[in-house]
């Protein structure tokens, strides 16, 4: 940078935008810890000894089953993640390693799924789930999210698998290592960094989704955290303490996880952008 003035103006712009990005969230979280009176009297103030209150949180935890929603979201996200990673890695390996008839067609079929949102098939998905007697189960969500996550995961993993040197696989074949073992003992350990990236791409939309929980499993006991918050806020819209507390409960775990994983995430996005 050429001079101090440029430096200062660059930082000013970035700081202003950072404030725009963060302020709304800080406002919600800080007011969630305040009494109702203080929320309205001085929304911009941080909670102090006089204004501190956990009333909202006790209300949320008393009247709704937040713990359960959280466990539901966690179950759906983690099981889906495991299925997507395993199946996508296997398919990506086969599609990029072997030349067989129908390979191109399969590749195109999966590629289409990257662009076409699975939501458009909702009418039939619901019919299918009714027929399979899976409505209001987490299984329904897991199956749909797995189908949703596979195409992009296959695409990214195939790019990484293509970078594994040919010699490595040939060496193993000369040693008499079977294809299944080559996959699990050599390919999987080598694409571990990519798997972490894919994990983030797969997890975030699932954790945050409202559409499919709303349609496939809105029933008592199977709500995810996003749907649970949506229903709660709709019901207690006038109870500001409770609404702010509910939003805070939804925001904080995601933020905490994000701050832990941010380095990995940005690296993943950056790597994906190269293509």
């Amino acid at each position: 940078m050429q001079n101090r003035l440029t430096t200062i103006s660059v930082h000013t712009v970035l700081l202003v935008y950072t404030a725009i990005a963060l302020l709304p969230m800080l406002l919600i979280v800080s007011n969630a810890f305040k009494s109702r009176r203080a929320i309205f009297a001085d929304p911009l103030a941080l909670p102090g000894p006089d204004t501190f209150s956990l009333k909202g949180f006790s209300k949320v935890l008393a009247v709704s089953d937040f713990g359960l929603y959280f466990v539901n979201s966690l179950t759906v996200t983690l099981v889906t993640l495991a299925l997507v990673l395993l199946f996508a890695a296997m398919a990506a390996w086969a599609l990029s390693e072997y030349r067989f008839r129908g390979r191109l067609v399969l590749g195109v079929l999966f590629a289409v799924g990257i662009m076409v949102p699975i939501r458009l098939g909702t009418v039939s998905i619901l019919e299918l789930m009714v027929a399979l007697d899976l409505t209001n189960t987490l299984t329904a969500l897991i199956l749909v999210y797995t189908a949703q996550g596979l195409p992009l995961a296959i695409f990214i993993l195939a790019e990484f698998i293509a970078q594994i040197p040919k010699d490595l696989k040939d060496a193993a074949r000369c040693d008499g290592v079977g294809e299944v073992h080559i996959f699990f003992s050599i390919v999987v350990p080598l694409i571990r960094p990519a798997i972490a990236t894919v994990a983030i791409f797969v997890m975030v939309p699932i954790w945050n989704d409202l559409w499919f929980p709303l349609i496939l499993s809105p029933g008592e006991g199977t709500q995810t955290i996003t749907l649970g918050v949506q229903q709660f806020v709709g019901q207690y819209v006038t109870d500001w303490n409770a609404v702010l507390a509910a939003l805070t409960l939804a925001i904080v775990p995601v933020l905490a996880l994000y701050l832990v994983l941010s380095r990995q995430l940005v690296r993943g996005l950056t790597a994906g952008a190269v293509k």
Binding site: P165, D167, L168, D170, A172, C174, G176, L190
Partner: peptide, 20 residues
């Protein structure tokens, strides 16, 4: 015959060592 059944061993230009 598959490579492994030929009783051969190969040393590659890139060595092809498993990095992990």
């Amino acid at each position: 015959l598959a490579p492994a059944a030929r009783r051969i061993a190969m040393v590659f230009q890139s060595y092809a060592l498993y990095p992990h």
